[in-house]
């Protein structure tokens, strides 16, 4: 996976580079908008990760320019400014996703994964880990062949964890996928729901699939 990072902050760029290399990404770093634009025009990238606040050409105009020129490389925008407005602005400019700072590395990886999946255009009909399956269309959940009844929220939570394919999903990503909240509810809503989901899919079965990753969130995978 070849990735272009357009970010003026050296340390953020270094962090992104090391995070992305853990999943086999080959990273090119451009430290301002102009260089970023030139690199992106050359093509050959699977995705662009671009900060909005950049010296010279800012992130929004950069994406707009690329889209006008017909460069279709998927773009994830990063920004420290206001959340909701900038998300709308970023997507309007032609970005594919938006990640507000501060973010966890796992969140960036999750977005990149879903971007790649969307681009590959593969629609899966069944999500599966070990003997746990979720039929995406009928919402039917089975563990070890036995049907498990889940509430709509629990069902969405399970889908969100399954789609991460074993990677950690942060509480913020769970909140936005399951509740569609754009704010931090400050409650332990996620933990309560994960507990309920565990009761239904893990309690009577081995091995337990839902794992708590301290501070970072939850993962659904074989231990």
């Amino acid at each position: 996976m070849r990735l272009l990072i357009i970010e003026d902050d050296r340390k953020t760029a270094a962090l992104l580079t090391s995070t992305l290399s853990t999943v086999g990404g080959v990273v090119v770093w451009a430290k301002d908008g102009e260089r970023g634009l030139n690199e992106a025009r050359k093509g050959g990238f699977d995705a662009l990760i671009c900060d909005i606040m950049l010296p010279g050409v800012d992130g929004l105009s950069l994406v707009r320019t690329l889209r006008v020129e017909g460069v279709k490389t998927p773009v994830i925008m990063l920004s420290a400014r206001g959340e909701v407005e900038q998300r709308v602005e970023g997507l309007d400019a032609g970005a594919d996703d938006y990640l507000p700072k501060p973010f966890a590395s796992s969140e960036l990886l999750a977005r990149l994964r879903s971007l790649m999946r969307r681009n590959a255009g593969q629609a899966v009909s069944t999500l599966k880990v070990a003997d746990l399956t979720l039929d995406v269309a009928s919402r039917e959940v089975r563990r070890g062949g036995r049907r498990v009844d889940l509430s709509p929220r629990e069902n969405l939570l399970l889908e969100c964890l399954l789609r991460a394919e074993g990677s950690v999903v942060s509480r913020r990503d769970i909140i936005s996928a399951v509740w569609e909240y754009d704010f931090d509810p400050g409650t332990n809503l996620v933990d309560v729901y994960v507990r309920r989901l565990r009761d239904k899919i893990d309690r009577d079965f081995t091995p337990a699939l839902i794992q708590t990753v301290r501070c970072l969130g939850y993962a659904l995978r074989l231990p």
Partner: peptide, 15 residues
């Protein structure tokens, strides 16, 4: 927010 992102990411890797 930017330094917090860097600190968070680095600690994540360490943890």
């Amino acid at each position: 927010k930017t330094p917090l992102t860097v600190i968070h990411g680095t600690l994540e890797q360490m943890a």
